[in-house]
């Protein structure tokens, strides 16, 4: 039996009366690189954001390393009431890092301070140790020359690489990427994708929501096609992109790659 680092069971998510996720089950093994594709409104970003509880689940369960996140305090018919304490969520987020579409860097801090912040404030490391780690991670994303720059002085691609350094500095077991290149100018997309690719080669467990199908094809060990709040089809990159079983998947991929070179 495979040991799963993250397991999702019967996940649903509603915003008011609008059900965005309609029951998702997923097992993720260590070292998997999962690309999540799908049209806008398919729920792919919401799904990713549920995994580190940027959104709270409406129903369903998430297990991290076999332990269920949150405490079930009762049942209301079929629906469990689960309490997610702030402390639990902070612990989960230390282990499940996230990179956002809009970077969400702290504009009042330098590049170095951005990366050091979590190490000092959350992990309680000394400034010296945090600085060492931060510099090493920033070297990894090729930004060691920008330590003292502020986010506003960087290009979008550089900002996103700082955000990646900030996330990996926390040594998360899983990394989530929420459309990391969608707000970048086309010529800056490559540098960010290369950085993500390097991380994948290190054997990290990663989930990536993306519109860059070419990258997903080369990068992912598994591809999920989300449609209407469910995993419509999944398989290896080869299976999904070259031989999709569902007509809907086929149509999505054809539409998305219509104008590619």
């Amino acid at each position: 039996m495979k040991n799963h680092i993250l397991k999702v069971e019967g996940l649903t998510k509603s915003f008011g009366t609008n059900q965005v996720l309609k029951g998702i089950d997923l097992d993720i093994a260590p070292g998997e690189r999962i690309a999540i594709i799908g049209g806008s409104g398919s729920g792919k970003s919401t799904f990713l954001r549920c995994l580190n509880f940027m959104e709270t689940l409406t129903t369903g369960a998430i297990y991290l390393d076999g332990t269920r996140i949150g405490r079930v305090v009762g049942k209301d018919g079929d629906k469990e009431s689960v309490v997610y304490s702030p402390r639990t969520l902070c612990d989960v987020r230390k282990r499940v890092g996230m990179v956002f579409q809009q970077f969400n860097l702290f504009p009042h801090m330098s590049v170095l301070q951005n990366v050091m912040e979590g190490l000092v404030t959350v992990l309680g490391k000394s400034k010296g140790e945090a600085r060492q780690i931060a510099e090493a991670e920033l070297t990894k994303v090729a930004l060691h020359e920008k330590l003292d720059a502020f986010p506003s002085q960087l290009s979008g691609g550089q900002q996103q690489r700082v955000a990646i350094a900030r996330a990996i500095a926390m040594s998360p077991e899983i990394l989530l990427f929420d459309e990391p290149t969608s707000s970048l100018d086309p010529e800056l997309v490559g540098e960010v994708l290369r950085t993500i690719n390097t991380l994948g080669e290190e054997g990290r467990t990663m989930l990536l929501v993306t519109h860059e199908l070419g990258f997903a094809y080369r990068f992912a060990t598994r591809v999920l096609f989300l449609y209407d709040g469910k995993i419509h089809e999944q398989g290896t990159a080869e299976e999904i992109f070259k031989n999709p079983q569902s007509e809907r998947t086929r149509a999505f991929i054809a539409r998305s790659s219509e104008f590619s070179l």
């Binding site: 940027m54 902070c90 987020r93 969400n104």
Partner: peptide, 13 residues
């Protein structure tokens, strides 16, 4: 996004 940036690295509110 600033709140989320903090939350994503495990900071409390």
């Amino acid at each position: 996004g600033q709140w989320e940036g903090g939350a994503a690295i495990g900071m409390t509110r």
